[in-house]
Simulated assay, not measured.
Amino acid sequence: MADVQTVVVGAGVIGIAIARKLARSGHDVLILEAEEKIAQHTSSRNSQVVHAGIYYPAGSWRAKLCVAGKTMLYEYCKGRHVPFEITQKLIVAVEDAHVARLPLLVEKAAANGVTDLVMLSAADAMALEPNLKCKGAILSPSTGIVDAPAFILSLLGEAEAAGAMLALASPLQAARPVTGGFELQVGDAQRTTLTCKNLINAAGLGAWDVAKGVDGLNPRHVPRPYFAKGSWFGMAGRAPFQHLIYPVPDDESLGVHYTRDLGGGFRFGPDLEYLGDSELEYSIDAEKADAFENSVRRWWPDMPQGMFQPDSCGIRPRIMLDGKTQSDFMFSGPKDHGIDGLLQLFGFESPGLTSSLAIADVVAQLMGENMR
């Protein structure tokens, strides 16, 4: 007899959403969190943007779960009075070469089921935002912002109301497959040992440490981590734009963009700096301010000079497969690695917050198919 039916490792937004879904479905659930508080990494170090689902490859997990999750998140927030705002977003072309990319983005979004984008002339875009300078734009009516901490706390409250338990300062150090489940060694103050039937690794940036502790898991079934660090800069004063402002994206990055929060604050970022698989490091290089300013000035030419100050920093748990950066979510279950009862989640970066409720539905489905 197992001590608990299902252990979810990681109390970020995705781990908590999974625990809520399973607990409400009748599972006996324990959440193990290595930190002393919930949501201390990717879940609390992001833009809090509710993404529409524009940029991701058609048919990818990120595309499907972003589009589905966006609707679910808005409906959830409406029903629970979690603060959010549909701010809308402008994707702006600041160079002639970028104007030609706008219809391609509209087509890409439509392939993902995002059919509400509106092409705008430069004049129309700048009429919406007088501080903006561009040569054309796309309006995304369904993009918004959410109070991420309030959303996460609401999910946790519902998970616990359904019987889920949360253990903080309790890193999972080792998992040994045994008959009918797993024996777990927890690195809490009591050095707890417990058993479970199902084990879900939703530890985000810590997913690789958890995977290393699973006895018998072949390393070839664990993708290489390729962490991507992004810094944000802010400034004092009144928000210069009401819409979110994103430049036409280049390569792997969406570019330095403008977001605001529900309290009236605003910031610019993130940039993109690969850390490989090195330690997590959240310092911000203040000397990057000039580069940020030059980037933003392309579409906000009257921006005050010398006002940028370091704001915050986040790290995305990107992955590499076959020597190439993988830009999709990865669910790794028993059919992949051969260990019954084990489901691992890798590469759950943006739009993880937007997609969290939809991700939880996928996990519940996979558990129904593969787990105990």
Rank of each mutant, 00 (worst) to 15 (best):
D271A: 01
S295Y: 15
L280W: 13
I284K: 01
I31C: 08
S170L: 05
V114G: 09
G352F: 10
V67L: 14
P83V: 07
W300V: 01
W61Q: 14
G237H: 04
A289K: 10
E158S: 07
A159T: 02
K78S: 13
D361L: 02
D188R: 08
L254G: 01
D124Q: 09
I315D: 03
K229S: 15
R238C: 10
G12D: 12
E160M: 13
K37G: 03
H41Y: 11
W61L: 03
L366T: 01
D124Y: 03
V296S: 08
R260L: 08
S350Q: 07
A52G: 15
P149S: 08
S44A: 15
M320E: 14
K64H: 13
L342D: 06
G157N: 09
F227M: 06
F268V: 00
G338I: 02
Y56G: 03
E158R: 11
D147F: 06
L105K: 04
L353I: 07
K197A: 14
A289H: 04
E281C: 07
S278I: 11
L199S: 02
L104G: 04
V186Y: 09
V362M: 02
F346C: 02
G144K: 12
L275T: 06
G269M: 10
G12E: 06
G230Q: 09
L73I: 05
G136A: 03
A211N: 06
F182A: 00
V49S: 04
A174H: 11
V362G: 04
A228W: 08
S154R: 09
V146Y: 15
R24L: 15
D116K: 07
L244F: 12
Q185S: 10
V256M: 14
R316C: 15
A202W: 05
S142C: 06
E75D: 12
Q305G: 11
R20K: 14
S154I: 03
P317F: 12
T87G: 11
Q190C: 11
E293H: 02
E95F: 02
K89L: 04
N198D: 12
L22K: 00
S121N: 05
E369M: 10
A202V: 01
G163N: 07
S253D: 14
A358E: 10
I245N: 02
L345M: 14
A127P: 04
I91K: 08
I18A: 02
N112E: 09
L73E: 10
S170R: 10
F292T: 02
G213M: 05
A34R: 04
F233R: 00
P130E: 09
L272E: 13
R191M: 04
Q344M: 15
Q185E: 14
G144A: 09
M126F: 07
A109N: 07
T354Q: 08
A289Y: 10
N370D: 13
L128A: 12
N218A: 10
W232F: 15
A110E: 14
S312K: 03
S312V: 04
G144Y: 15
P351N: 05
W61R: 05
R220E: 09
G269W: 15
E36W: 09
I145A: 12
A150C: 09
F308L: 15
W300K: 01
R101H: 13
G113D: 13
T71L: 12
E293P: 00
I315F: 13
P249D: 12
I91Q: 06
A93I: 10
L117K: 01
